[in-house]
């Protein structure tokens, strides 16, 4: 796979060039934090960021998406027929995505893109996107990608990996799609020390992360034992069931489908939903199988850390981005939950 060097001052030019050819998305500073959005001015992309507040999952699975429109007008011969809303599938580049977030899409694929079932919008959006990742030279204290099978320089899910080597970036193609993207740009001469620099940066980043817990120590436990462990009583106490953790998470994919109707026009919407909300499992009968907070909290963590690995054999459904750790208003820390799942309910002193 090819590798090119981009001097730092050349990057805006390349961004501009890509903007001419593709729809370009990247991290944009919003005053308090960064979010991924479509870039309108080349200067708006800010690669000097830690990570975005919300994960980039919304680019593939928007929070609120109109799927179909319909009319209920009896006079209209098409009354009640769902019409798909056209979407923009023109080629796009997503620049500056972190390795954990790119890996999350691979984990999410098992839900949206299987041999039997293909979610057409997810699949087509994945197809039209080229992911240009940015390696994490300086992971933050809430990151734990290396504990869950990823890494700060991991390329899973990426088409190109950028490594910031100081005066510029080394861009490494990971897939043929990435190869094509790089073929279109003019690189600068690669500094001789770059390969060594990358090795050093990678080692230092990995070393700074350490291991937050051992995945096998709970994935190999008996499911029912974990399910009925008293640890959930402890974990659930502070939770306010707000759903923040699920909204910021790149691997929380659950949604609800609702029709919104005004007079005789309607739209069928797909909306993020979450296991933390009581309504999520509320049956038409009035029964709620997860009517208690404890059951909902347990569901979120068991889904990520036990049911998913059991079902797909694909590792845990958490990429260690740390967003939920930072955003939870009451400091429920998935690393701590994982440790409790490993050790049983021993309260930390």
């Amino acid at each position: 796979m090819s590798e090119i060097y981009i001097a730092r001052e050349k990057l805006p030019g390349i961004v501009e060039q890509w903007m001419g050819r593709y729809r370009l998305f990247g991290p944009v500073f919003q005053g308090q934090y960064h979010e991924f959005e479509q870039v309108k001015q080349p200067g708006a992309v800010d690669l000097d960021f830690v990570n975005t507040k919300l994960s980039p999952k919304g680019l593939f699975h928007p929070q609120a998406e109109k799927m179909f429109e319909f009319t209920l007008d009896k006079q209209n011969p098409e009354a009640g027929i769902l019409k798909e809303i056209p979407r923009d599938y023109s080629e796009r580049v997503i620049l500056g995505i972190r390795p954990c977030d790119a890996r999350a899409f691979v984990l999410d694929d098992v839900n949206f893109n299987t041999n039997d079932i293909k979610d057409p919008w997810w699949v087509r959006r994945r197809e039209c996107s080229t992911l240009v990742g940015l390696a994490c030279n300086d992971p933050c204290s809430t990151c734990f990608c290396t504990s869950v099978g990823g890494g700060p320089f991991d390329t899973a899910g990426l088409d190109v990996l950028l490594v910031d080597v100081g005066d510029g970036f080394v861009a490494q193609a990971v897939t043929p799609k990435g190869e094509d993207l790089l073929a279109g740009i003019q690189g600068d001469p690669m500094p001789g020390e770059a390969p060594q620099k990358i090795e050093d940066l990678k080692k230092a980043a990995e070393a700074s992360l350490g291991k937050a817990f051992q995945v096998e120590s709970f994935t190999q436990k008996n499911m029912l034992d974990l399910f009925s462990d008293p640890l959930w009583e402890e974990v659930q106490f502070s939770c306010i069931n707000c759903g923040t953790c699920t909204f910021v998470c790149p691997t929380c994919w659950c949604f609800d489908i609702q029709d919104e109707v005004s007079e005789d026009k309607g739209a069928r919407m797909r909306l993020w939903d979450a296991c933390m909300f009581p309504l999520f499992t509320y049956h038409g009968s009035g029964h709620n199988p997860r009517g208690q907070k404890l059951q909902r909290v347990r569901q979120r963590f068991m889904h990520k850390l036990k049911y998913y690995p059991d079902k797909y054999g694909n590792g845990v459904a958490c990429v260690g981005c740390g967003r939920c750790v930072k955003a939870c208003p009451v400091n429920i820390d998935i690393r701590q939950v994982a440790r409790l799942m490993s050790d049983g309910c021993v309260c930390p002193a």
Partner: peptide, 10 residues
């Protein structure tokens, strides 16, 4: 708390 500026209801 497990991170700065955060404590956990207990």
């Amino acid at each position: 708390g497990t991170i700065p500026f955060m404590n956990e209801p207990f």
